[in-house]
């Protein structure tokens, strides 16, 4: 059985947030929802400041607190280490969200159909139609509705229905086809590496072999599958700067 992991090279990441965009397009996530999120942070005081970047997908913990607290088993961890949510089982209690120290869970607070893309826009408006060529967004990736894995369960990939929890799936619909997650393939500087960590020849194993690495909040015992290379874990001095739109409008 494979055991998937992701290596994130912080020395390479330039904070372009292309992975966030790729994730939104691949998974059609609603407004203000970032399954992949890149912190742009700074430390120090002017003029001695240092800027750094920290991509934050779901950590796909090997000891996931969200799986433990789920009262109905909607959150589950596959044998290959991918942590997924069954949107038909989820009752929307949001316990996984408060249990997760990484803040990766996104609850669908509203019906996402009106703003499936990034903005509420009247696409029938002639001025808008002149730009879009008449294409109305809310494209939906058909792979997201497939039942995945041996368990044949939904994975919070495509439902986006109001009142359930969703989060990064490591693009399980792509991984099961032998592809990399969308964020990994799109990264222009190869900061993200993905593969079977138990296979010594997989890209992620090769990448991690000669580099020192750390895991986020390792002291909590969650044992994440996302491993950071280079850089440094965020400390108490780290401040976030430059936030994207993170408000859900009602």
């Amino acid at each position: 059985m494979a055991k998937y992991a992701m290596a994130v090279d912080l020395d390479r990441c330039q904070g372009c947030r292309g992975c966030m965009e790729a994730c939104k397009i691949e998974n059609n996530t609603p407004q203000a929802v970032f399954w992949m999120y890149v912190f742009r942070t700074e430390t120090g005081e002017y003029p001695d400041t240092k800027m750094s970047f920290l991509p934050r997908p779901c950590q796909h913990c090997n000891n996931p607190p969200c799986v433990k607290v789920c009262p109905v088993g909607a959150r589950f961890r596959r044998e290959d280490g991918i942590v997924l949510t069954d949107p038909e089982r989820c009752i929307g209690c949001r316990y996984c969200e408060v249990a997760c120290p990484y803040g990766v869970n996104y609850y669908n607070w509203r019906k996402p159909d009106a703003a499936f893309g990034a903005y509420d826009m009247d696409y029938s408006d002639p001025d808008v139609a002149a730009v879009t060529g008449g294409v109305i967004p809310s494209y939906k990736n058909p792979d997201l509705d497939l039942l995945q894995g041996d368990e044949q369960r939904l994975t919070a990939g495509g439902a986006h229905s109001v009142g359930v929890m969703e989060k990064c799936t490591f693009c399980v619909h792509r991984v099961d086809k032998g592809l990399n997650p969308a964020c990994v393939d799109v990264c222009p500087v190869h900061a993200l590496h993905f593969g079977d960590i138990e296979d010594p020849e997989s890209p992620v194993s090769v990448y991690l072999r000669e580099r020192s690495s750390f895991k986020l909040l390792d002291e909590l015992g969650t044992d994440p599958s996302v491993i950071y290379v280079g850089g440094a874990p965020p400390g108490s001095e780290t401040r976030e700067i430059e936030r994207p739109l993170t408000e859900v409008r009602s």
Binding site: F34, R110, G163
Partner: peptide
């Protein structure tokens, strides 16, 4: 009818709210 969006609650993490 409208979903929990009508309450003052929002997600943790990037949404900077309180989910409970």
């Amino acid at each position: 009818t409208n979903g929990l969006i009508v309450t003052g609650m929002r997600g943790l993490g990037t949404m900077l709210g309180a989910t409970w």
